[in-house]
Design a protein around this nucleic acid. Structure first.
Lengths: 240, 240
DNA sequence: AGTTTACTGTGATTCAAATCACATGTATGA
DNA sequence: TCATACATGTGATTTGAATCACAGTAAACT
């Protein structure tokens, strides 16, 4: 299970300094906050928070990654967010309901740092610039959700997939000599649950995109984007 | 077209006092801000902001209502938000991009009050409680977007419709002697564009729900919810 | 009031994606 | 190293929703 790790590298590395949200804080403040935080580790597949439970608090992913998902009435797993290293979650539902609206599960060995609700509120009250940063961060997350709603409202599977690939390209893409290389954060099953379609359909459409020369796979998790323009045209970003 | 209306009732009514976001401000501050704001009127069907244009600023709906939508590549209109009276929009995209990501159109005769980006920023910096209120408001909007993503990810049309009806019930529902009466904010075509499906499918499913005794229509815009529990079971909120 | 225009319901048909079924491939762990 | 479970691709079939087509109805305009 999860365990407190006071001997972890959080303080030494000052993990929070890599989180844009806290960019406006000076070193002394960061140290203070880091010591206040609770630190936990999870193995791949372990649950960080369960839907319906009491919120842990504002949680920063110091190392590793996680997915936020919900099991729907028809038994499907709908993935809402992927949180990469240095991303965070929990701010949103500290401000709304008591119960956590979705589960979060570690996708790999993952270390998190948790700030309690009271501590976060105090931080926001004492450091107004952090509140503005949080607003900006939430604005970006809303922007993404709005795009997802648009792509999910679309009729064809191709649009959803193209939009997803563009999103992952922005988050995980690296420019290499062979083109933009993207490490997909999820299995095919996971990708399908992210865009809300059957695994088989996703698989077929990805093969199709590869045949058309839009993308190329190095292996099942490593992808090259050959024709970004075509992806944009297929995606929800395309103008009418 | 739109026109400035300095003679409108904004100052007298102090429209902003009805907006929860500004609950923490005292009367004097509200008056100051109201005078700073730009006031405009739109007739039904008129565009308040166009996708791709420069943001107007933080916009409060003093009277009337509006829809935010985007035309997708396949020519469909995807509705993202419905803004009822005393709701507001524009905070989100003031913090992200330069261009407005969707169009907003008045659904009826509508009066709006606009605060420019600089004015909003100044307000947030000078009145930290307003920033916290804004975070809370954004959290609620994110919560709704997350629910929409979940329902859009679902396979069947019924789930999307049930989720939409519950949402409208919360926003527009009034307890009457005959049950919970809901005035739908959109035509059938609009509802279909809101949940991302064909008008015909929506129409058929609504008739079906009426036959099953879950809802009842007084006229095409007035609806009674007879069995809220059944709607919840059909919706995205249902536990697995 | 009468005409035009937009809105709505319903059947018939088509079609894209889900589901079913299974073979192959790839990790994972005893 | 092998065995077991998990991941992936691909064909065949089914199905739910989109599309097409049209009639009836309500609303808006002159």
């Amino acid at each position: 299970m999860d365990s407190n790790c006071m001997s972890c590298t959080c303080l030494h590395d000052l993990c929070l300094s890599k989180v844009p949200l806290f960019a406006s804080l000076d070193h002394a403040n960061l140290v203070t906050i880091t010591t206040q935080m609770q630190h936990k580790s999870y193995r791949k597949g372990e649950t960080i928070i369960s839907e319906g439970s009491h919120p842990l608090g504002f949680t920063v992913i110091q190392h590793g990654s996680a997915k936020a998902y919900r099991i729907t009435a028809d038994g499907r797993e709908q993935i809402l967010y992927i949180f990469p290293t240095h991303d965070y979650f929990g701010a949103r539902f500290l401000f709304t309901e008591d119960a956590v609206p979705y589960s979060v599960e570690a996708l790999e060995e993952t270390h998190v740092c948790i700030l309690s609700k009271t501590q976060l509120m105090q931080l926001l009250a004492e450091h107004p610039p952090v509140a503005l940063e949080l607003i900006e961060a939430m604005a970006h997350r809303m922007r993404r959700l709005e795009l997802v709603v648009q792509s999910m409202g679309g009729r064809n599977a191709e649009m959803r997939i193209a939009s997803m690939l563009l999103e992952f390209m922005d988050t995980y893409g690296k420019q290499t000599d062979r083109g933009i290389e993207v490490t997909l954060p999820l299995s095919r099953e996971g990708l399908a649950n992210y865009v809300g379609m059957a695994r088989e359909t996703l698989s077929r459409k990805l093969s199709q995109l590869e045949e058309e020369g839009v993308i190329a796979f190095i292996d099942s998790r490593q992808m090259l984007v050959k024709d970004r323009g075509m992806l944009v045209d297929l995606s929800v970003l395309a103008a009418e």
